[in-house]
Design a protein around this nucleic acid. Structure first.
Lengths: 196, 196
DNA sequence: GTATAGTAACTATCTAGTTAGGTACAACCG
DNA sequence: CGGTTGTACCTAACTAGATAGTTACTATAC
């Protein structure tokens, strides 16, 4: 690490502020709905710098998504596959604490179809681990590994995915603790862990 | 039904073309990304008529969403709650045939938070039926009814929700038939139907 | 001939991206 | 050291094109 001059430090700080502001804007409004001017303003910075540092709006969006993705992957590197319900609950908590992150991912899913290297590698790795556990007989193998992982993600996200109308219908049962325990139970059942 | 004049019939036809074009535009680009000009063009009609018939872009969006929602609810009115896996598979097929419909719903979820009467009633009804079956002992009651239904929807949507990266990781297992059977099995496990 | 369906051209506003310039920090020179 | 200059960081004002919504008009069925 070369020591940074004060100018460089300031520059980095500005970039961080821009990224944070962009994250906020994009998770709220998506790519098409986001306004470059608002991002600059929110960052207490200047629009020009966005184009200098990040190229254009789309590239900024991609950088923001990529960073959030990496952060999430880093936060959940280890715990697979012998405690899938535990992993699901961990992800559930992550999601509950950061609904904005998932909003951002949905926007990307709708507005930009492409999928990054990091992401592909991550999925391949996790699916491979589950498949390995299945071959070793440590996990029920009736449902293929990739399906199992897809369902796990589906269950974990089901509440934020569901319309508010459904949440309303849940009434008292909609507290976070109860939802968490249901997620654990559901994933245990799907993965066959509850019978093991 | 009053008999329609030819003018009225033509007017209705124009409205239908506008709605169809709007559906296409909105499911592709969302509310913010949609272009009123493109909708008019696609409908081989005129922009002005959109404002006459539907008010403005947002109201048009709401009408389009509402219609799709009602169509979907009508298509799946009956089959709950004693064969939840069957219901899930039916929904799964509906989704596979009409991914655009779900894209539209996701856009709405991100871009407009409100939730319609029809939708609320629909959820309340379905959750109530499941709860009833639980009370009657026909269905495992460890997971609350609303949670069960949320998970069912999560599992059904998990594939279209998942990043393409995960689909890639599934390889040969990603055929629709195999995915359908996994959905059936997963929902059976979550709802406890497989043990019954 | 008049009300209803339809059209094209227009406008005010907004927005991504750019131009032209200013400011402050460091480095070099006298 | 004190001043000068180059350069990296930053800013405000601008532009060209797009976009939601309107106005003013024509055509056609009854």
């Amino acid at each position: 690490m070369t020591p940074l001059t004060s100018k460089q430090r300031q520059s980095r700080a500005t970039q961080e502020r821009l990224l944070a502001a962009a994250f906020e804007e994009f998770q709220l409004h998506g790519l098409a709905g986001a306004r470059v001017d608002r991002i600059a303003e929110r960052a207490k910075s200047n629009k020009r710098l966005i184009y200098i540092y990040f190229g254009n709006k789309e590239q900024l969006f991609d950088v923001v998504v990529q960073r959030s993705l990496e952060k999430m992957i880093d936060a959940h590197a280890v715990p697979l596959p012998d405690d899938l319900p535990g992993y699901a609950v961990e992800l559930f908590d992550y999601l509950e604490e950061r609904p904005e992150v998932f909003r951002l991912f949905w926007w990307r899913h709708l507005e930009r179809r492409d999928t990054s290297e990091v992401e592909q590698a991550n999925y391949r790795d996790k699916v491979a681990r589950i498949a390995e556990a299945q071959r070793a007989g440590r996990l029920d193998a009736k449902i293929p590994a990739a399906h199992l992982f897809a369902f796990l993600l589906g269950v974990v996200q089901s509440w934020s995915l569901a319309s508010d109308a459904l949440r309303d219908a849940a009434g008292e049962d909609a507290t976070r603790d109860r939802r968490r325990e249901s997620v654990r139970e559901a994933v245990a059942r799907v993965t066959g862990t509850s019978m093991g």
